[in-house]
Design a binder for these strands. Sequence first.
DNA 1: CATTTATATAATAATATAGTTATATAACAG
DNA 2: CTGTTATATAACTATATTATTATATAAATG
Lengths: 107, 107
Amino acid sequence: MPNLDAAFSALACPTRRAILARLALGEATVMELVEPFELTQPAISRHLKVLESAGLIIRRVEGTKRPCRLAPTAVAEIDQWLSMLRQALNANYDRLDQVLADMKTEK
Amino acid sequence: MPNLDAAFSALACPTRRAILARLALGEATVMELVEPFELTQPAISRHLKVLESAGLIIRRVEGTKRPCRLAPTAVAEIDQWLSMLRQALNANYDRLDQVLADMKTEK
DNA sequence: CATTTATATAATAATATAGTTATATAACAG
DNA sequence: CTGTTATATAACTATATTATTATATAAATG
């Protein structure tokens, strides 16, 4: 069972979304992720911890480095939840279509 | 330009996700949304305000009632951002496929 | 008009979040 | 072994979030 609280909460922060966008280009170490931001290394380390415990990234150990990459499953789990809303919205849209169709035939 | 911070932040709260799930079944008034929760009416009103300003719900005025429903666009905007991650993950997966294929032909 | 119903807002308290600096740890380089 | 590099953790501060109670407002009802 995924932790949607943690996943959505992690995605709510623009810094963390930027980190994920960077990782979409490929693996990166902590210092590589610190570099583009005006934040200290401990701040980024905390963001990475949040992303990791939300299941959004995974980390390897490579000597003293901890390269991060996107985790494969979390996005799918988020999508799965959102699909419920998508369905409801599509259903409403279809209903609206029907209403408009009915209005046409009434004329 | 959508406010992804607000949207993801709104979705991070299980109460608010439950409200959205309820609204997926159809429009509901504030008191109807209060009923299933062990929370006070002001608490739910605040959650609704958060959902509204994140663009996830819209409200009508109907006498003294304020029926809420799902907003049509926000989910699409979230999906759009997530698709970036999805693509990256699929690319990695394809690459892994390629690696596995290469390992096979090497034998 | 007085009362009730539906909702919103304000004041407040408890907790969570995000940043900082300082420091610890562990691998690496010489 | 010593100094340096990569990262993590602790202590602390500022701000945001979430809940509560009390109260305001505006429509509905008798």
